[in-house]
Structures are given as C-alpha cells and as structure tokens.
Design a protein around this nucleic acid. Sequence first.
DNA 1: TTGAATTCCGTGCACGGGCACGGAAAATAT
DNA 2: ATATTTTCCGTGCCCGTGCACGGAATTCAA
Lengths: 352, 352
Amino acid sequence: MSGKKRLMTIKDIALQTGLSKGTVDRVLHNRGEVSKQSYEKVMRYIEESGYTPNVHASLLASGQSHRIAALLPNHEPGSFWELFQNGLDKAEENLHGLGLSILRFGYDQYDIDSFRAACDELLASAPDGVVTAPLFLNDTTVLARRLQEAGIPYVYIDSKLEDDGYMAYFGTARYQSGYLCGYLLADDRPVNQAVIVRIRRDKNRLSDPTVTRRAGFMDFMLEYAPDCRISNLFIDPNDPEDIRKELEAFFDAHPDVRHIAMFNSRIHLIVDFIERRGLQDQCRIIGFDNLASNVEALKRGTVTRLIAQRPAEQVVMAIQTLSDKILFKKDPVHRDHYLPMDILTRYNVDYY
Amino acid sequence: MSGKKRLMTIKDIALQTGLSKGTVDRVLHNRGEVSKQSYEKVMRYIEESGYTPNVHASLLASGQSHRIAALLPNHEPGSFWELFQNGLDKAEENLHGLGLSILRFGYDQYDIDSFRAACDELLASAPDGVVTAPLFLNDTTVLARRLQEAGIPYVYIDSKLEDDGYMAYFGTARYQSGYLCGYLLADDRPVNQAVIVRIRRDKNRLSDPTVTRRAGFMDFMLEYAPDCRISNLFIDPNDPEDIRKELEAFFDAHPDVRHIAMFNSRIHLIVDFIERRGLQDQCRIIGFDNLASNVEALKRGTVTRLIAQRPAEQVVMAIQTLSDKILFKKDPVHRDHYLPMDILTRYNVDYY
DNA sequence: TTGAATTCCGTGCACGGGCACGGAAAATAT
DNA sequence: ATATTTTCCGTGCCCGTGCACGGAATTCAA
C-alpha cells in the first residue's frame, strides 16, 4: 500500500561520508564550523545522490506553528472585498494541520487612520508572512518598508506597488481588462453612443483602480469606433435617489444610448433603473466582478457580461506562495502573476 | 518569528485525562483495547478542546513515500491530452518533498489493447491512488472494480462513469457547455443557418463526449432560433485533403452560412480553409479547448470564441484531492466538481 | 613547553505520533 | 483457593531533522 523506496536521509549521508549527522546538518544549512574538505565532500555526495530533506521531519523538529497575516478592508456583505474573504476561508482549510494559521486584520477602506492602526496591530503580532491589497498607497509603502526591515515576506493581491521588496503579486491586468470590456461592449457591431457610469469621488487619497481600465477601454473604442460619443455619468453609490435622478436625467437627454459600462464592481447599482425603464432587452451592459447582486442581474439578463478577476483565487495563491516560503523556503518562480479575466454570461456563471 | 501558540498534543490529552498517550492513540485510531469509560473520557476531551493531530509528526512516524498513478492517453504535442500533462507537471511540484510521487501510465486512445495493458501495469504497481479519464467505458469500469477491491481511491477527470466507487470527479458540465456554445454563436442576433463540423467516426467503442454538448447546443437553438437550419458536416481529422474537399463542397452548396461550431477540440482543422476562402471576417466560429493551434486562430481573429475547461486544473485538483486522502485521510466535501467553462476571446486568452 | 584560544565535529535530546511489547488488573474457569 | 484467560493500559523505541552542548584536535600566544 505504501512506498517501498525508502528515501535517503541525513544519516545515510553521514554514513557514506564518514562524518556525523551533525556535520551534515551544518553543511545543509550553511551554518559554518565545517572544514572546507568536509563541506565539499558532503556537498558532492548530496549533488550526485539527489538528496531531498524530509519536509515532515524538518517541520516537526524546527517549527512551531507559523502565522500569516491578511490585511484587507472590512467586508460588508455583498461587497467586493467579501470575495477575498472567501479565499481566506478556503486557504485556511488547506493550512489546517500544517501548523499554519491566518490572522485577519481589517480596516475601513475610507478611513486612513483605521488602516494605520491595523498596520501597527499587524506588525505587533509579528507574523511570518503578510498578504495585503494596497489601497492607501503611501501608507502601504511605509508598511512594506517596515516588513522588509523585519525580514517578513509579503505578497500583494488585487493591485501592487512598485517597491522592490514584495515577494509576489496576484491580480489581473487592468488595462487589458478595460480593453476587453470595450470588445465585449461593442461586440463586432457599430456603436455610436456609449456611457460610462462612474463613482463621484471626493478627492481622497485612495488609489483609483478604474483609471487604468478606463484607459484600456478608451483605447479600444478609439481604434474600433473612433466616432463613438462616450459620455461620463457620475453617481453617488450611497444615495439611491441620486442614482435614479442622474440616470433619469441622462437617459432623458440621450434616449438612444444602448451601451453601458462600469469599471468598478458596482454595476448592480444601475440595474434597478434600467429594469424600471424597461431598457434591459435593448441595452448592452458590461460590468466587473461577480458580486452576488451583479450575478443576479446577469442571470436575469439585465447585465450582459461580467468580467471577473478571481478574487478568491488570488488570495489562495498568495497564501500558498507564502506557506511555500515559510515552510519549505521555496521562492516563487515568477513574481507577478496576472490571473485570467473571466467572462461571465448567464449561461456559465453558475460554474464559477 | 514563529508561533507562541503551541498546539495541543497527544501528550496533553493524556495528561488531562489521566491516561497514557498509548491509550489516547488507541482511541484516536479506533484500535480497540480501550475501556468504554476511558474511550469516552478521551473523546469528550478531544471534542471540547478541538484537538487536531500534527500531520507532520503523523506522517513522519507512519509513512514512507506514497505514489499516485495517472492513467491518461498519450499526449501528442499540441493535442488535447497534452493540456492534462501540464497539470501533472504542476501537481508534481507541490508534491515534491511531501513523500508523494506520480506514476504516469500512457496508452493509445484508439487502441483498446494498449489501454488494457496500461491498466495491468498500473495495478501491478500498487499505487496509493489513481486519477484517470474514462475513455473506454467498459474497460474503465473493470479497472474501477479492481481498484475498489484493492481499496485504492480513484478520481475521474474530464468525464466520469456512474459507478459508485469513485472518490471525486473534476470536469465540466457537458450539456451546459453546448448550450453556452449556442449562446455565443448566436449572440443575440438572428441566425438562419449554421453548420456543425463533426469528426467522421468509425463505430469504435470510445465514448463520444460531444453528443451531450450537441444536445445542449440544439436545445438552445431550438429555443432561441427555432427556424435556424443546422447542417452537419463530417470530416476526417487525419486527412487534410478530405477536410478541404468537404468544406469546399459544403460552402459551395451553402454560400450564406456564417455560423460554425465544433464540439471537440479540433476547431483548428478548419481555419485554414476559412482563411483561404476569406471568410474569417464574416464568420462567427466557436470552438472548444485552448490548444496552441486553437489559440493562434483565436488571436488571429478567425475563431471568434473558445470555450475552455481548465484541463490542467482538473488534474491539479484531482491530485490534490488524492493526496489529501492519502496523507491526511481527508475526504472531499463534494464528489462531483464542475469546473468553470471559460470563455476565451483574443483579448483575454493571454492570461489563461 | 604549557596554557589559552580557535576550529571543527560528534553526541544526544527534542519535536509529536505510531505501534509493539509486556505487564497489571479484572474476569472467568478449575 | 489458585490457575488461566481476557481486558485494558503504560512504557519505550522509532521515524528524520534541528540544534545545543561539550569535547577533541589544532593553532596561536607566552
């Protein structure tokens, strides 16, 4: 039922080289206090015998439980960040029993002080690895520097900073996702008018992930439908009445617009209006991210396509990368990982 | 750097219950020779303390290296089955050092004798788990029975048999993928004529994975475009001349057909003809699976959409499931796993 | 030449759990 | 009552690696 092939051990190496396992161990871990000839004898034997240390024994002997910290915005139910929490849950399952646990640190994504507090908490907990999504650019840079100083590996998800110390990044290609959005919106048909619905922002210090998408979108349209008139419509996500009024005003003024795109995860905010006005069968509407409310609208047919970016998978892969590093000292082959942009329709969304 | 929180051990349980670790161990493994009251005392304590055995210690003490067998058709370069081999390679990385290895058994998918020989080889190697894609239905059933008798867990990928013994299945929903194919082909536009390109088969004993897809496709068309005339065109995949002739004859007879679908992975077989005839900009062509040659045609714009079914991921997840079972005795929560049907366009295919 | 510092290396315990062995206590037989 | 079986349980070694400790061999200083 189990393997006949007993793997090579440190003791075997010791026997073969005429040294003790203590010495072999010092060689394996570059811990010095070994003569040059002993060092080379061991190294040579290891090379040609292809010895691999037994992970279980190693972990058992050296490790207690390690901890990975996740620093993400608080996840209101049905929000974008909740999708990431699902990934955390899934990742935790796999870690269970490997002596790894996850510490979660949350903050209010609109309150920079709460973010700073969370950073302090995180550092105080002295984790063995960190996964985070950079929202506050400056303060995340500060955090990154402090993590580097402490020698704690950290992984970015969703978006990344260009500091030089992060171990890996998992996310999607922003520009290309906007380009794709244009492709799906136009869909090989002529488009004369389109509208982009945007969030009205007070100039806070948050990075705006949609600018790059918008750029990709505009470039596609420039190339494919240079004469298309593209309007920008601003709404307040927290004020349904404002949303209704803005949309109403817009569609009264532009009754022929049949193409709508939104570059954040809030496409669900406009479906109510669309359905009430009876536009759902005539409009082509593209949004991002598979929030429950977005998916509902997609299945009803009001939203035409959703572009999703595998948030849970980002988290799972990030944690996987960290645990490889922490437990097995394995470094990732690539640093930047651009995950697929999934195209969701009403007929395949159930399988995501 | 590492955890303060020392996890609970068997010794702790022994101390708390006033028994020895030997007894606790007997309880944990249902090995009998324990009085009812001792058994319950231990069980109760375990319940309320949430004890989890240390996987590493357990594996170190009990296990040598285990092996997982993969039984798949030989993978000619650029073929459908090569995508699965990529998954095997990826899975092998993760297993390295966990005391798990993969044994690969190949066979000629058109030669049932080679399949039988591979089965015998596989069984002779006495693996701890098996992953396979059922092509020869009857003979896979035989294999399944023999594996059950030997107590070896096995996982299906790509498609599954309805025997009761498999541990898990990873694949896509066939019918729905065909339905989706129809949706993408019609794409909210009226369709009067369409053609399905099929492989001319001699009646061999292979299961035909495309029948179910075809059913889904037809049902979609029936609902959405009941008046559409759908032709079936048969080609010999190994005879380029035959392909050319058949297509030519068809399009001479039906010059207005602009919608083409193919339910196997061979859509690349027809792109040559399409491009030579200059139809690429007028046709809507939907195919399956991201073979290199298919992806090329997609990026050139000849193929409109590809529906892919994550073959590598199927393998990775199957092996993951098996190793969880073998190493940690963890059973999968669900048995059947329907993976997403990815919609590939020229603008997102690079990220898969 | 002797003592001290340095370099190098072997021994042995620990990690947490699996499991064989043997022995004490209880139950049954004689 | 003792002998014999059965039931139950504790002890101790093993898995392969990490690492502290102490000691031998060598070098250097005096």
